[in-house]
Simulated scan of single mutants.
Amino acid sequence: MGEKREDEEGRKRDGLKVVRRRGEGGEGFGRRPRRRRVLAEESSSAIQRLFEVCRAVFRGPGTVPTPENVDELQLILDELKLEDFGLSTDLLFFKDGRALKGNPTIIYTNVYNCNNFSMCIFFLPPAAIIPLHNHPGMTVFSKLLLGSMHVKSYDWIETSDSNKRPPSAKFKLAKLVVDSDFTASCKTSILYPTTGGNIHTFRAITSCVLLDILGPPYSKKDDRDCAYYKDHPYFHVADGNSESGGGDGCIGWLEEIDFPEYLKMEGIEYLGPQIVED
């Protein structure tokens, strides 16, 4: 009695419930009615500004943003919050404390996509893993909006050392770049086509929300398909001894594998602040 009626769109899956409330149109994910007008105005402004800067920064395939453009986009991303996308920690997804077996389903929603760049949000339950994968020819900005996750990344390296010949064509030598935990609101991470950790993996420690901006986006027809890898024990360049730690001197083999069977991903409609294209 006296409860507000809701129009539910999408599905409840692994604790994530996407709700469109009556009177809100398509402006957000399950926001509180009393804050609707303030959030709509502020969120729309933040996301619109992000879009406009991305449009100026990403010039298309074969290009890499200038250092000045990178700094400008990073500053905007560093200030972004959940609320800017109409999200709230009141979502059931963030409160689900169940112990999940295996690799739980990862939810994603596409905020924007064009030939020059894409914006996507990932919702990772605790223990969820996005396997080691590459970003051919891409510059990628990753902003952790909520939670803690472990990130491990590599860059390809070339060597003429006959002792470092690959075991087979599916193996390639790579250098470990990052092997650390990150917690929101940490700085935005950036990777480039050949540096910065172009091949990376995420493992959620807590419930996480991750914004990824890719320029240019994946495209099979343009030879920018996503490949997956398995890393094998690496060694330290100085003495060749097997080690378990990370660092600039650690290298190892990355083996290209088929699409991981354990990876479960499900897309939902984006209902956050809408982007206006001039």
Rank of each mutant, 00 (worst) to 15 (best):
A174H: 07
K175E: 09
D155G: 09
T188V: 13
D223G: 14
I213T: 04
C186M: 06
D179M: 08
E158T: 15
V151S: 13
D225S: 14
H232T: 15
K230G: 03
L191N: 10
V178P: 06
C186A: 11
K230M: 04
A204R: 13
E158M: 14
V178R: 12
S180D: 12
P193T: 03
F182H: 10
P193A: 06
C186T: 10
S244C: 15
G240C: 02
S148H: 10
K152R: 15
C226P: 02
P167V: 05
K164E: 07
P217W: 01
D155W: 04
A227Y: 11
P216Q: 06
K164I: 10
C226Q: 06
T195L: 08
Y154W: 04
T159Q: 00
F235S: 11
D222K: 15
G147E: 00
K221S: 14
A184R: 08
K170H: 01
S219R: 12
K187R: 09
R203G: 00
F235W: 08
E243K: 11
S207G: 11
D181K: 15
F235C: 11
F182S: 12
R203S: 11
G147P: 14
A238F: 02
K230H: 05
S153L: 10
L211W: 01
R203L: 09
P217R: 07
T194N: 09
R203M: 12
R165Q: 02
I190M: 01
D155K: 07
A227C: 10
L210I: 12
H232K: 06
H232C: 08
R224K: 09
L210F: 04
I213N: 00
A238T: 07
C226H: 02
H232P: 03
S160L: 07
E158L: 07
S185N: 07
P217N: 05
G147C: 05
N163Q: 14
T194Y: 04
S160M: 06
Y154V: 06
N198I: 14
A174C: 14
K175T: 13
C186H: 01
